Amino acid sequence: MSPSRRSPAPDKACIDAVDLARSVAAEVGRPEWVGAPLDPEVEDTRLVTHYFTCLDPAYPGWTYAVTVVRASRAKDVTVNEVVLLPGEGALTAPEWVPWKERLRPGDVGVGDLLPVEEDDERLIPGYAQVPDSELDAEGVDQQMVWELGLGRRQVLSETGREQAAERWYNGESGPRSPIATAAPARCATCGFLTPLAGELRQMFGVCTNEYAPDDGKVVSLDHGCGAHSEVRTPVSKNDPAVPVVDELGYDHIVFDDTAELELVSSDS
């Protein structure tokens, strides 16, 4: 077992180089930003780090650290490095997060490229690689082949479909959005809905009403809005009603038998 390493003996010249360390810290920052000296730390033989409180308003809780060194048999002390170190409660940058975890929907802009990893669980290999020339020669339906994934290197996996369905259904184009709860009817009965292809057609379609807020977007079948195809202009209640004249009915009048009726001639 190797003997335990002894702590290096403090070098007096390096310990006393407080003014040198302060002047270097002032050059890096400003003289008024270098505060009171703190306890120095002996790093190694003839290697000492001096600490000063940082008074810069932009760096509360930080400390200037100036490391000085003296070469063997040398009389002068020189500066090795000077840095700012964060202390307890110091304002620091958040922990670095890989770009893949920082990425959010809508971050990809014009000219941006978003690489897809080879093991992306949302994708699986296509069923086959069929040249267009062979398809044309055999007369295969190009649209059918495209929907099945033939000719594409990768297609959407079951996991990818489930993630997309959950994201769409729980989003603003799902049944729980405010506009859907106030809608007069569901998208499933709207003439402007175009169903998707494949399994997703059971739950989703694309809105094609240019006046609807979801035009060109995927919506759930139980979504809805005020631009439904069955909405009609309501009858105005302010229009006066047409009078109805009863020409067939009559009123039954009962006269008192004791009353004397006087016939009045129209000539009188």
Rank of each mutant, 00 (worst) to 15 (best):
Arg152Glu: 03
Val77Ser: 03
Leu150Arg: 13
Gly126Cys: 04
Asp76Leu: 06
Ala93Lys: 13
Thr258Asp: 13
Val130Pro: 00
Glu118Pro: 01
Val18Pro: 00
Glu118His: 05
Ala165Leu: 05
Thr233Phe: 06
Ala183Ser: 00
Asp112Tyr: 12
Glu260Tyr: 05
Ile124Glu: 14
Gln163Arg: 11
His223Thr: 07
Trp62Arg: 02
Gly249Trp: 07
Leu84Thr: 03
Arg46Val: 02
Glu41Lys: 10
Ala137Cys: 06
Ser268Ile: 08
Glu27Ser: 11
Ala9Thr: 12
Pro86Trp: 14
Leu193Thr: 11
Ala197Val: 08
Gly174Trp: 00
Val108Gly: 12
Pro131Ile: 07
Leu103Ser: 10
Ser23Thr: 10
Ala21His: 13
Val245Pro: 00
Tyr211Arg: 07
Val68Leu: 12
Leu123Glu: 03
Asp222Phe: 13
Pro240Phe: 11
Gly224Tyr: 12
Leu221Tyr: 10
Thr159Ile: 09
Ser133Gly: 02
Leu221Gln: 14
Ser236Phe: 01
Val231Gln: 14
Arg186Tyr: 08
Pro3Glu: 12
Pro86Val: 09
Arg5Gly: 00
Lys12Thr: 09
Pro234Tyr: 07
Val218Ser: 06
Pro31Gln: 06
Ser173Trp: 15
Tyr59His: 11
Gly109Arg: 10
Val155Thr: 11
Leu148Asp: 00
Phe255Asp: 04
Asp141Ala: 04
Thr189Lys: 14
Leu196Val: 15
Arg152Cys: 02
Asn209Glu: 15
Cys207Val: 10
Thr45Gly: 03
Arg30Asp: 13
Val68Ser: 07
Asp11Tyr: 02
Thr49Ile: 07
Ala9Glu: 13
Pro3Asn: 04
Phe204Asp: 00
Leu38Met: 05
His50Ala: 07
Val69Asp: 01
Glu95Leu: 05
Ile15Phe: 06
Lys75Glu: 14
Arg30Tyr: 12
Ala183Gln: 00
Ala227Thr: 07
Ala13Phe: 10
Tyr51Met: 03
Pro8Tyr: 09
Val28Asn: 09
Asp76Ile: 03
Pro31Arg: 04
Pro3Ala: 14
Val242Arg: 04
Glu88Gln: 04
Pro94Met: 12
Glu32Tyr: 09
Thr45Lys: 06
Glu118Cys: 02
Ser157Trp: 04
Trp146Ile: 08
